[in-house]
């Protein structure tokens, strides 16, 4: 196969395997197949699931999860994890609500402050990881616990309870809600605006990943950090930017949820960090970095949304959702492993 002087006959044969290979190693292929199967399964049994209202219903949880899954996918392609991302959605929501309801900030200013805090957390996560070369798993586990403590401690100290509420009264609420947490009509059903944000974030992330220089660097620092540095890739800046992107996404999701519910629980976002990672892995991201896709992660989130609501529509016990999650994760990891071995196989 590696003989350089292969005749024209051999080339034709290679061309056909090349096409099959190119399709097979698309990272999002597994997720797309999975999504089709899951949709067929639930749509076949539930009238509600396949109605326009049903679609609007299951796209809703998929959208907020999807925004985070896409950001986490970029980070994972860059070879890092962020366990603090889930709790950070709670932190940003709490900051916005507290500032807007207790300190008289307009909602936009409050959100701006929350964004600054989120970006700072992301920056620190990234800085510690690249400067110490410690595993990001441990570093962000530390931030995760610290943020969890702050969320609870500050909320209790300020309100005496474990939630802050009353965002509806804040200045600029209706406007902000329309932009981030409103609805739009399509085909007789009300869809959440968050779905558009989800699509936008996915499109932007895909463009950055596939068509920009930083996109090339993300693949490189995740694939082989040392080799990337050797050819002059700014590996540290790339990784810090990825952590800040994840934090920015957490702020977006935190704001969307705070505006929708007008209150935030002190433990909001807790436990979601693994769901983001699972969605990214189902979408074709390798845990070892260097490979994956933003579209795949978005489809991974879609599978979650469908299963989350589909199980309810079928009248099953919601506990089965957990079982489903585990099974999907295991299947996806096995599939990814095969793909990676196929892609990395050295031909002699």
């Amino acid at each position: 196969m590696t003989v350089k002087t292969a005749g024209p006959g051999a080339d034709e044969r290679l061309a056909s395997t090349g096409l099959a290979r190119r399709l097979l190693i698309r990272p999002e292929l597994g997720a797309v197949v999975g999504a089709v199967v899951v949709f067929a399964f639930f749509a076949g049994q539930s009238e509600t699931f396949r109605s326009v209202d049903g679609v609007a219903n299951w796209l809703d949880p998929a959208s907020t999860l999807g925004i985070m899954a896409v950001a986490i996918a970029l980070l994972m392609i860059g070879g890092e994890f962020d366990l603090s991302a889930g709790v950070l959605t709670g932190t940003t929501g709490l900051i916005t609500v507290i500032l807007a309801t207790r300190y008289g900030f307009s909602i936009w200013t409050a959100m701006l402050v929350a964004l600054a805090v989120a970006l700072l957390v992301g920056f620190l996560n990234g800085l510690i990881v690249v400067r110490t070369t410690l595993p990001s798993f441990i570093v962000t586990l530390g931030t995760f616990l610290m943020l969890q403590g702050i969320n609870l401690g500050v909320t209790k100290a300020l309100t005496g309870t474990v939630q802050v509420s009353g965002l509806r009264r804040a200045e600029g609420y209706e406007q902000a809600r329309a932009v981030l947490a409103g609805t739009f009509s399509l085909g007789g059903a009300d869809f959440r605006v968050a779905i558009l944000w989800w699509l936008g974030v996915t499109a932007l992330a895909t463009w950055v990943l596939m068509r920009t220089r930083p996109g090339n660097w993300i693949f490189a620092v995740g694939g082989d950090d040392r080799a990337a540095r050797a050819v002059g890739v700014p590996a540290e800046r790339t990784k810090i930017a990825l952590f800040m992107t994840t934090a920015g996404a957490a702020w977006l999701v935190g704001s969307i949820l705070a505006l929708r519910f007008t209150s935030v629980q002190a433990n909001a976002g807790l436990g979601q960090e693994f769901v983001y990672i699972i969605a990214a892995v189902i979408g074709g991201c390798l845990l070892t970095g260097g490979y994956g896709s933003a579209i795949g992660a978005a489809v991974g989130a879609l599978i979650f949304g469908m299963a989350d609501k589909g199980i309810v529509f079928l009248g099953w016990d919601a506990d089965w959702f957990r079982f489903f999650l585990g099974a999907m994760l295991l299947l996806a990891t096995l599939a990814n492993r095969l793909v990676r071995r196929y892609a990395e196989e050295v031909r002699h």
């Binding site: 090339n216 693949f219 080799a227 002059g232 260097g290 892609a343």
Partner: peptide
């Protein structure tokens, strides 16, 4: 270098221009 030459999971053209991508 023998081992640092390329990033295995990236395509040939992405590797070729890594760090000096035309834009």
């Amino acid at each position: 270098y023998q081992d640092l030459a390329m990033i295995p999971l990236m395509s040939v053209w992405r590797n070729f221009f890594l760090g000096s991508e035309p834009s």
